[in-house]
Computed example of a mutant assay.
Amino acid sequence: MSDPIRHLTEAGHLGSFFIDGGWRKPDGAERAAIINPATEEVVAEIPLGNGGDVERAVAAARRAFPGWARTRPEERAALLARIHALILERQELFAQAMTCEMGAAITSARQAQVPLAAEHIRVARDNLTNFPFIAQRGATAILKEPIGVCALITPWNWPLYQITAKVSPALAAGCTVVLKPSELSPLNALLFAEIMDEAGCPPGVFNLVQGTGPVVGEALAAHVEVDMVSMTGSTRAGVLVARAAAPTVKRVAQELGGKSPNVVLP
């Protein structure tokens, strides 16, 4: 099946979040429309998360962190290899999702969006096999440890690519994650959560909460149990994330754009 709306609807995942290893109903009742840019038609609706959903997801990630951080690099690399294989197996489903939800030309989705996203997984897996977690400098041993729970906030325009660019290295390092994709292009994130589940990702290591930046994004950035925020988006949103994160002195990594639009005429 290459119809992402039908696939997610039949699986029962279109109206759910992925938290603590299972598909959970949202805490609130607010919803957002998914609009196909080519037709301007509403093709589906998704629930929008709130503070309660964030609390459950962060708590799950915090519980899972000690065990995941202790896994051997070979175990984490094996999980990444399974994720990589599943993305390649479902390339057409991901490509159709991105065409439907954010207007990517199908050739671009097939030839660039999905393959480049898969490469992030492969590179993280390959780097993990020989990464020097312990390095000797003179008489000093330097140990590199996972930072903890990471909140990952991704944009609408390269959705799967940005997800894998953030999730892959976080998991490889031994971190647990809570992903908040753009509410404008949520389908690929749901498909990615399915893959994480089928690949055997331990409960709580990967969590997905859909929602808006001012609600879910800021709640994640401000949360005392989140150790790092990685955010790609507009400068306006980046300022809000940095302000929300400042009181807890967590690490914040940002890629801020929101520039250079293209006007496509008939």
Rank of each mutant, 00 (worst) to 15 (best):
G21N: 09
A85S: 10
P202S: 04
G204L: 00
L160K: 10
T107I: 04
G138H: 07
R122N: 10
R72C: 05
I19V: 14
E74A: 15
V216K: 12
P37H: 08
A44D: 11
D20T: 08
W23G: 08
V177D: 06
W23S: 10
V177M: 00
A118M: 05
A244R: 13
D27E: 14
N130E: 15
A173N: 04
A61G: 11
Q91W: 04
L179F: 07
I83S: 02
I5M: 06
I87N: 00
S182P: 00
W23V: 06
L88V: 03
T9I: 11
G21S: 04
V123P: 04
R122E: 10
G21Y: 06
F65W: 13
M196C: 14
M98N: 03
T235C: 11
P169M: 03
A57K: 01
I5L: 15
A104V: 02
I46C: 03
V215I: 14
R31F: 10
G22E: 15
E194N: 07
L152S: 01
L191K: 02
R251V: 15
V216E: 00
A253G: 11
D197H: 13
G233H: 00
I83F: 08
R6Y: 08
L116M: 11
D3P: 01
N262P: 01
I153Q: 02
E10Y: 08
G258P: 05
I195T: 07
R63Q: 09
F133A: 13
P266H: 13
I83M: 15
S16W: 00
P146Y: 10
G12N: 15
E55A: 15
A117Q: 04
L187P: 03
D20F: 08
K180Y: 03
G213Y: 12
L220K: 04
P66A: 05
R137A: 13
D197Y: 13
S260W: 15
I163S: 05
A199S: 09
L190Y: 01
G200E: 09
G51F: 01
P115R: 00
V264R: 14
G138V: 13
T248L: 09
K25I: 11
L208C: 09
P159S: 15
P266M: 12
R6G: 12
R110A: 00
V167C: 05
T140I: 13
I142M: 09
I195N: 00
G21D: 06
V229G: 07
V249N: 11
G174L: 03
F206K: 01
T176E: 05
G15A: 15
P203E: 00
V216D: 08
L14C: 13
S2P: 02
F17Y: 12
A97F: 09
A64N: 06
S168D: 02
R6P: 05
L190C: 12
A124G: 09
A105N: 01
R6F: 03
V241H: 06
E119M: 10
K166M: 10
W68S: 04
H223N: 13
N207M: 12
R76I: 03
V58N: 03
G28N: 08
G28P: 07
Q113H: 12
I87Y: 14
A78P: 00
V54S: 04
E55L: 06
G12I: 08
A246S: 14
A104P: 00
E101T: 09
L240K: 11
E75R: 15
F17A: 07
Q96I: 03
